[in-house]
Nucleic acid binder design. Sequence first.
DNA 1: TTGGAAAGTCAACAAGGCTGACGTAAATTC
DNA 2: GAATTTACGTCAGCCTTGTTGACTTTCCAA
Lengths: 164, 164
Amino acid sequence: MAETPGGENLLYLTDEQLRKGIEAMFFAYRGFTADPDRILEGKDYGRAHHRAIHFIHRSPGTTVSNLLSILGVTKQSLNRVLRTLIEDGLVRSEKGKVDARERHLHLTDKGQMLERELSDAQRARMRAAYRAAGPQAVAGFRQVLEAMMDPEMRRQYNRLKEGG
Amino acid sequence: MAETPGGENLLYLTDEQLRKGIEAMFFAYRGFTADPDRILEGKDYGRAHHRAIHFIHRSPGTTVSNLLSILGVTKQSLNRVLRTLIEDGLVRSEKGKVDARERHLHLTDKGQMLERELSDAQRARMRAAYRAAGPQAVAGFRQVLEAMMDPEMRRQYNRLKEGG
DNA sequence: TTGGAAAGTCAACAAGGCTGACGTAAATTC
DNA sequence: GAATTTACGTCAGCCTTGTTGACTTTCCAA
């Protein structure tokens, strides 16, 4: 066994183990997005709409620029998605009262319904995976994912965590 | 604490915990792809090329149809990527000897070099995350990801695991 | 009052998915 | 030996979702 002077086993850091982790991320992410993708298929929306809906649901009243920094896309790209959601009556956009340049975003009842459908499907898969792996594994899963984020993204993630 | 008749704590299965897991996947996957994306940016290649290169490296001599089933895209989509890699001399395509309809794919030396550059970057991040989280966490990470895959993808993943 | 931030819009483009149709060579089946 | 199936390649066209660049409107704050 490969041991450090300190005595810990470092076999989990071999290139082979890292490669398995990389491939696990690749295949798991496919599963992660599969159910919402299927639901959206028939509805004229895509993954970008799902992401916007998720984070508006998560932080009702959030501004466009806040959403931009969470999603990491350009405003032109987000705007296209947001516009269709507003036109279709899933999202409501309100001028800010304290700062009227800002637009505060909320899901309408119709938007809530779609959000529910999407997140129910995604949570069902996550719940099954969590249950199959058990609480210890889940704690480790979250630790590794968190360590994998860019610092800026980790900040966003933790801000959301606290808020909830 | 919420306990089952059996006595286990099921708080890790609450909607709140599941939502955190979902957001962790989203932000972590961004980090996961960030380094290779940056490297490919200047090189006229994208994530699709990276995926092809990864799995050809992983299974030298693999056929086009095998690659198709691993990547889960159409042959037209894969072909576009593969053609540029072959034209640019990163990938070599050989008629099969036992079945001449098949094309067996290999990385050239030039292809190996790019693969190295990409996977070094991706492994560096993964290694840092693994090290930060520790071996117990890594085991859990892998368990949850595996449970999250579609059965078909899990089959692919395990075939690769054994092969390596 | 003016500079700059926030938001939105238009136009053009690229990557990378998709479908459908068609062609060819080789293997398999009848 | 003929017909069918398989593996692969390719053309054409479409969609989503990302990009850059240029420009306007609104309005807060120095």
